[in-house]
Amino acid sequence: SELMNSSKLIRMLEEDGWRLVRVTGSAHHFKHPKKPGLVTVPHPKKDLPIGTVKSIQKSAGL
């Protein structure tokens, strides 16, 4: 199965306009000026399962 580095996923979010608002432990929480909701990324993780990545991307509207 495909894995993604959390840094790469965070870069994709930031390029889309998401900004880090809070860190709780290894959970990084992002908000967007125009899009609704809060997106949480486990970080640092070298090997996020593709299912997790897809669900984060979906929440972020990517």
Rank of each mutant, 00 (worst) to 15 (best):
S1V: 12
S1I: 12
S1L: 12
E2M: 11
E2N: 12
E2D: 14
L3C: 09
L3A: 14
L3F: 11
L3E: 11
L3H: 12
L3K: 14
M4T: 15
M4F: 11
M4I: 07
N5D: 15
N5A: 11
N5I: 13
N5K: 06
N5Q: 11
S6I: 03
S6P: 03
S6T: 04
S6H: 03
S7A: 12
S7N: 09
S7G: 12
K8E: 14
K8V: 15
K8P: 03
K8T: 15
K8D: 15
K8N: 15
K8M: 15
L9V: 10
L9N: 01
L9I: 07
L9A: 04
I10P: 00
I10F: 03
I10N: 02
I10M: 05
R11P: 02
R11F: 08
R11C: 11
M12L: 10
M12F: 07
M12T: 08
M12W: 07
M12E: 09
L13Y: 00
L13T: 00
L13R: 00
L13W: 01
E14R: 13
E14N: 09
E14A: 09
E15Q: 13
E15R: 09
D16E: 05
D16L: 05
D16I: 06
G17V: 00
G17F: 03
G17L: 03
G17W: 02
W18S: 00
W18G: 00
W18E: 00
W18N: 00
R19P: 00
L20I: 08
L20G: 03
V21K: 06
V21M: 07
V21Q: 06
V21R: 05
R22P: 01
R22W: 15
R22H: 13
R22F: 13
R22T: 10
V23G: 06
V23P: 04
V23W: 09
V23I: 14
V23E: 09
V23S: 08
T24N: 12
T24D: 11
T24H: 11
G25L: 11
G25N: 15
G25Y: 13
G25C: 07
G25W: 12
G25T: 13
S26M: 12
S26I: 15
S26C: 09
S26E: 12
S26G: 15
S26H: 10
S26N: 13
A27N: 13
A27C: 09
A27G: 06
A27D: 11
H28I: 05
H28V: 13
H28D: 01
H28N: 08
H28W: 09
H28F: 06
H28P: 01
H29G: 07
H29Y: 10
F30Q: 00
F30S: 00
F30M: 06
F30R: 00
K31F: 09
K31M: 11
K31P: 00
H32I: 00
H32S: 03
H32F: 01
P33Q: 09
P33K: 09
P33E: 07
P33I: 07
P33H: 12
K34E: 10
K35I: 03
K35Q: 03
K35R: 05
P36N: 07
P36L: 08
P36Y: 08
P36V: 08
G37M: 05
G37H: 05
G37F: 04
G37L: 05
G37E: 05
V39D: 00
V39S: 02
V39P: 02
T40S: 14
T40E: 10
T40I: 10
V41R: 00
P42T: 05
P42M: 05
P42F: 04
H43P: 02
H43N: 03
P44W: 03
P44L: 04
P44R: 03
P44C: 04
K45I: 11
K45W: 06
K45A: 07
K45M: 11
K46C: 08
K46R: 11
K46N: 15
K46E: 15
D47S: 13
D47E: 14
L48C: 02
L48P: 01
L48S: 01
L48E: 02
L48N: 01
L48D: 01
L48V: 06
P49T: 08
P49Q: 06
P49I: 03
P49Y: 05
I50M: 11
I50H: 13
I50K: 08
I50W: 14
I50A: 12
G51A: 14
G51D: 15
T52G: 02
T52Y: 08
T52F: 14
T52M: 14
T52Q: 10
V53D: 02
K54W: 06
K54A: 12
K54L: 09
K54G: 05
S55G: 11
S55W: 09
S55N: 12
S55I: 07
S55Y: 11
S55P: 02
S55A: 15
I56H: 01
I56M: 01
I56Y: 01
I56S: 01
Q57I: 15
Q57T: 13
Q57Y: 15
Q57C: 12
K58T: 11
K58Y: 08
K58P: 02
S59C: 09
S59P: 02
S59A: 15
A60I: 06
A60P: 02
A60M: 05
A60R: 01
A60T: 03
G61E: 05
G61R: 05
G61H: 05
G61N: 06
G61F: 05
L62Y: 03
L62I: 10
L62F: 05
L62K: 03
L62G: 03
